[in-house]
Simulated scan of single mutants.
Amino acid sequence: MSAVGLYVPPRSRRALLHRLPAGAKLLGLVLAVGAVVAAANAAVALAAAATAALLHPLCGVGVRPALRTLRALAPFLLAIALFQWLAGDWPSAARVCGQLLAAALLAGLVTASTRVSEMLDLFEKLARPLARFGADPRRVALVLALTVRCIPLVASAWHTSREAYIARGLRGRPDVMVVPVIVGLLRSADALGDALTARGID
């Protein structure tokens, strides 16, 4: 993986997705997710999620990125499914969860097959029209870069807190992991702010 822990180098010469331009992959992602949402059908949403999961090994990314996405989303999907079931019915819960999972897996596939530098170059180009309104395309790309960088930081902070939680023999109190995670993220934010200030970026 890359330094940000997102890009996965191609595992075979047939990994065509890695060779596609970032713009084409982003456009395909928007169209695919839009089609799944527009269909508003539980079977279509679940089929799209299953297809997105199968595409990971087929496109040379492997199954680990898909499994990480599933583990990260599992608590939220369970909560959403329970809420939808209580407020509506099971088909609605399956549809909403399927759509979210399909979107997350497809986005993860694009991220895993695209170098961060390529994605940032694309976003900088897309942000150039905003220069007419006083926005700096490079700053827009920087914000996106920091956003991408924070994804693995949050996951790492949670993983570290969970390991400490288990090492102390704690059980049944997952809420005690929240404060260490927040403290760790605040310290990382302070360090990042100091680094940006030292480089003359306000």
Rank of each mutant, 00 (worst) to 15 (best):
A50S: 02
Q84R: 00
F83W: 06
R149G: 10
H18W: 14
M119Y: 08
P91G: 13
A42S: 09
V148D: 02
A15S: 15
R13M: 08
C59F: 14
L82E: 05
R64C: 09
L16N: 08
L144W: 07
L27N: 01
L31D: 13
T114L: 05
E118T: 01
R95S: 11
V37C: 06
S92K: 00
A50L: 05
Q99P: 04
S113H: 10
T69M: 04
S12E: 09
L27S: 10
A87C: 01
V8K: 14
G108E: 05
V110Y: 01
A66K: 06
R128G: 03
W85D: 00
L54Y: 03
R128N: 03
A94R: 02
S92L: 00
K125Q: 03
A42R: 04
C97E: 03
S12W: 09
A52Y: 08
P10M: 13
G28S: 07
A72E: 05
A53E: 05
P75V: 12
A145V: 08
A50G: 10
E124A: 12
V61N: 07
V96C: 11
V148P: 00
A48Y: 12
L54C: 04
G88C: 00
L86I: 03
G23V: 12
A112L: 07
R115P: 02
A104M: 11
L17E: 13
Q99L: 05
P10I: 04
R115C: 01
R138H: 09
L144F: 06
P9C: 03
R128P: 01
G23F: 08
A40Q: 02
L130S: 08
A50I: 06
A103Q: 14
P9D: 02
A22Y: 11
A47W: 04
V96Q: 07
A74R: 10
F76D: 03
A94W: 02
L31P: 15
W85R: 00
A94M: 09
A22W: 13
L29R: 04
C59P: 14
A48Q: 07
D136T: 01
D136M: 07
A104Q: 12
A48L: 10
A43S: 11
A15M: 14
G134L: 04
A35D: 00
P10W: 04
T114Y: 12
D89S: 06
T51Q: 02
G28C: 07
V116D: 03
E124P: 10
P9R: 12
G34Q: 15
A38L: 10
V61C: 11
N41T: 02
R14Y: 12
L67R: 10
V33I: 14
L54E: 02
A22H: 07
L109D: 03
A38T: 06
A135S: 08
G60W: 05
F133Q: 09
P129N: 00
T114E: 11
L109K: 13
A49P: 14
